[in-house]
Simulated assay, not measured.
Amino acid sequence: MAVKVLILEDNPVARSFLCRVVRESFSDQISITECGDLESARHQIRLTGGASGLHGVDPFKLILVDLELPDGNGMELLEELAQYPATKVVTTLYSDDDHLFPALQRGADGYLLKEDRFEVLVEELQKIVRGQPPLSPAIARRLLGHFRQGRVDGGPGRDSGFTVPGELAGGTAPVAIEKVPDHERLTPRESEVLTYLSKGFTIKEIASLMGIKWFTVNDHIKSIYKKLNVSSRAEAAVLATKQGLV
């Protein structure tokens, strides 16, 4: 079954360019749906179970979202899709904090600049397979600078409301080790994925070992993070080891 991708971009040339980037980024069979405005994107999402991605309906697994659209702002869609089971990546020309942090707050899993070279965008999208957030180099530097400045000042930095994962901050975030009463809720598949994560396997390697699609592994990892209340594989591995989950 083809992996379903939704590209929301009002500029036809940019949309065609992003289609090429997506096809080059992944080895899986890809089915791309192109939308030029919010309403058409919402319609396509309703056809795949609505904003919650109803069970039994084949949802999009990757959604690329432009911010400035003829009938609104991509931020609106990010908010609406907070519970939608897809990797959501902003693709925009804006690299400033006023766009970056609100997008991350609203659920974006990545943030790419369309002005980057084709090869750079392909490489950044491929990070999804390796379990890393897709971020344009300029955006990654901005995030690191933002939070490092906060540490230098002795405070939390500007009040963005966004907590940077340990993997972005250049190290393992402190993990409060507490008893996790709900760890039994991990499904057998999630426990297997967590075991592989703890041993350092990439998402692509886990998918190969388990005989499933890497997007499915990505879904399991999101569920694991939510259940264990962590935000990176490093935190998940530490907590899993401390609690004897693996």
Rank of each mutant, 00 (worst) to 15 (best):
Q83G: 04
Y84V: 08
D10T: 01
V22C: 05
T87C: 13
L18G: 01
D153C: 04
E24L: 10
F26T: 04
L64C: 09
A237P: 01
E205T: 07
L6V: 03
E34V: 06
S198K: 08
G50K: 08
P85G: 06
F162Y: 15
E39S: 10
G107K: 08
G74F: 05
D219E: 13
M1P: 06
P188Q: 09
L78W: 04
V230H: 05
R142Q: 09
L38F: 01
P12C: 11
I221M: 13
D109H: 15
E34H: 01
K227W: 04
T48D: 02
E235K: 05
Q243E: 11
L144T: 04
V129R: 15
I30M: 13
T91R: 00
P134D: 06
P59N: 09
H183Q: 04
Q132D: 11
P156K: 14
Q44W: 12
G155N: 13
V230Y: 05
L6S: 08
D219C: 02
S198G: 10
I7F: 03
I203A: 12
I128E: 01
Q132I: 10
I203W: 01
S160D: 13
F147C: 06
S27M: 06
R189P: 00
K4A: 06
V57L: 15
A234D: 13
R20K: 09
R46Q: 11
L8P: 03
R142S: 07
E24D: 14
T87D: 13
A103G: 02
E124Y: 00
T195S: 14
G49L: 14
S52I: 12
S31K: 11
L81H: 05
E76W: 11
L197Y: 00
T91W: 00
M210P: 00
C19A: 07
L209T: 02
I203Y: 05
D66I: 13
L135I: 01
V175W: 00
F118Y: 14
S31E: 15
E192W: 01
R130F: 08
N229P: 00
L93G: 05
W214M: 08
M1G: 15
G157Q: 08
